[in-house]
Amino acid sequence: MEQEIIDSKFLESMSGKRPFLKRMFTVFISQEPKRIMEIKDALDSRDVERLRHLAHSLKGGAATIGVERVRQCCLALENASKARDMDAAMTHMGELEAEMRHAYAFMFNFLANN
């Protein structure tokens, strides 16, 4: 079974807090592209400490709003940076970018319809 883009249990828990959820999604959409660029920059410059830190902070942000697949990609990226495995980090970066696109699409759709 494929994992949901946004955890349905999280969405259910937020059902009575739509304005708050919309604000959380808006902040994620507006701030995270910058962090993705910073992660790519850290990867390109092979700065494993910065890469680990950025992946860790995005992981926390993703966990907070139920974006589980993004959280898992960040965890894999964080672990690759700890192991100084830049080939694995590059692979996980590609996966992370794809998952972020799915998350943005879900959030834009949610914001448009709520």
Rank of each mutant, 00 (worst) to 15 (best):
M1T: 11
E2A: 10
Q3R: 14
E4I: 01
I5C: 06
D7C: 04
D7E: 13
S8F: 03
L11V: 08
S13Y: 06
M14K: 02
M14C: 09
G16R: 01
G16M: 07
K17S: 05
P19R: 01
F20V: 15
L21K: 06
K22G: 08
K22H: 12
K22R: 14
K22E: 11
R23Q: 15
M24A: 14
F25Y: 13
T26V: 02
T26F: 01
F28C: 01
I29W: 05
I29H: 03
Q31L: 11
Q31N: 15
E32F: 03
P33Y: 11
P33E: 08
K34P: 00
I36W: 04
M37S: 15
M37W: 00
K40P: 04
K40D: 15
D41P: 01
D41N: 14
D41H: 13
A42E: 07
A42G: 12
A42I: 10
L43Q: 04
D44F: 11
D44E: 14
R46L: 11
D47Y: 03
D47E: 09
V48Q: 06
V48T: 13
R50I: 04
R50V: 05
R50Q: 12
L51W: 02
R52F: 05
R52M: 05
L54Q: 10
A55W: 00
A55N: 03
A55C: 13
A55P: 08
H56W: 07
S57V: 01
S57A: 09
L58Q: 03
K59Q: 10
G60E: 09
G61F: 08
G61C: 09
A63R: 08
T64P: 00
I65L: 13
I65A: 01
I65D: 00
G66M: 05
G66V: 05
V67L: 06
V67G: 10
E68C: 03
R69V: 02
V70S: 02
V70Q: 02
Q72K: 14
Q72P: 02
C74V: 07
A76R: 04
L77F: 02
E78A: 06
N79I: 00
A80S: 13
S81G: 14
K82R: 15
K82E: 09
A83V: 10
A83D: 15
A83M: 12
A83Y: 04
A83S: 14
R84P: 00
D85F: 08
D85E: 12
D85Y: 06
D85C: 08
M86L: 15
D87L: 13
A89S: 09
M90R: 15
M90G: 09
T91A: 07
H92M: 03
H92N: 09
H92C: 06
H92R: 12
M93K: 07
M93R: 05
M93Y: 13
G94S: 09
E95A: 10
E95T: 05
A98Y: 00
A98R: 12
A98V: 00
A98W: 01
E99S: 02
E99P: 03
M100G: 00
R101E: 15
H102T: 05
H102P: 00
H102D: 12
A103E: 08
Y104F: 14
A105E: 13
M107K: 13
F108D: 15
F110E: 06
F110I: 07
L111E: 07
L111P: 10
L111V: 06
L111Y: 08
A112Q: 13
A112W: 01
N113E: 10
N113A: 12
